[in-house]
């Protein structure tokens, strides 16, 4: 039977549950890596060394108010890092992790019998079969890449909503970023080349004609 479903039915609220789990991790103490990160940032926020950094930073630091707002920012950064420190070690290959992997994969796989629907959303029988297949493969310890390769070998590339990086798909993947980079390059080149501004001063003759026109029949 579906593990996901059972989880959902038994826990009173996935959000609540996750939150509790998270908080307990948070208070129990983060892992060394995230702990170090937090300590470094905290040190940066208050240490004299950071002051010297700040003097080199592009932001002009003049006055107590600025400094206070910078410390405020640093504290805010700390706050926002908390969820990560809490979760940095939660990503073990446990049931929850498998569950998340399976769900992410469902979103990438097309239900071959439906109209542009992924198998997560479809309640067709074939989608259920494919979901089960993916679950089994995850349980067997295969990596996401292996599972994707297996699926495309069995059903063809058609089944994957995220096309592979291949020579045939080169344009698909590379054109949007290329056009962005190219566009910026072209824009920079044009603005370099264009030296003279358009002159926004009317010449004598133009002034005279303009006065002439406006004076007419008024």
């Amino acid at each position: 039977m579906n593990r996901k479903r059972q989880d959902r039915v038994t826990s009173p609220s996935p959000f609540m549950g996750r939150g509790d789990h998270l908080r307990s991790r948070w208070w129990a103490g983060p892992t060394p890596v995230s702990q170090c990160l937090t300590v470094v940032i905290a040190a940066l926020a208050v240490s004299p060394a950071h002051r010297s950094l700040r003097s080199r930073s592009p932001l002009p630091m003049n006055g107590e108010g600025e400094r206070r707002s910078m410390s405020l920012l640093a504290v805010l950064f700390l706050l926002l890092l908390l969820p990560f420190t809490a979760h940095a070690d939660a990503a073990h290959a446990d049931a929850a992790h498998d569950e998340a992997r399976a769900k992410a994969l469902y979103r990438e796989v097309r239900c071959v019998a439906c109209q542009s629907q992924d198998i997560a959303d479809s309640d067709a029988a074939i989608a259920a079969d494919m979901r089960r297949e993916i679950r089994e493969e995850i349980a067997q310890g295969r990596s996401d890449a292996e599972i994707r390769a297996g699926l495309s070998a069995r059903y063809g590339d058609y089944v994957l909503f995220r096309p592979r990086f291949s020579l045939g798909n080169l344009l698909l993947w590379s054109l949007p970023p290329l056009i962005l980079v190219g566009g910026i390059a072209v824009f920079v080149a044009i603005s370099r080349r264009r030296g003279a501004a358009r002159d926004y001063v009317l010449s004598e003759a133009e002034e005279a004609r303009l006065r002439d026109i406006l004076k007419n029949d008024r």
Binding site: Y200, V201, L202, E206, R209, L210, I213
Partner: peptide, 16 residues
């Protein structure tokens, strides 16, 4: 403001 005025003036001259 001056740029816009000049531009409008030129459009008027052209129309004439």
């Amino acid at each position: 403001a001056n740029e816009e005025r000049v531009e409008a003036a030129r459009a008027l001259l052209k129309a004439e």
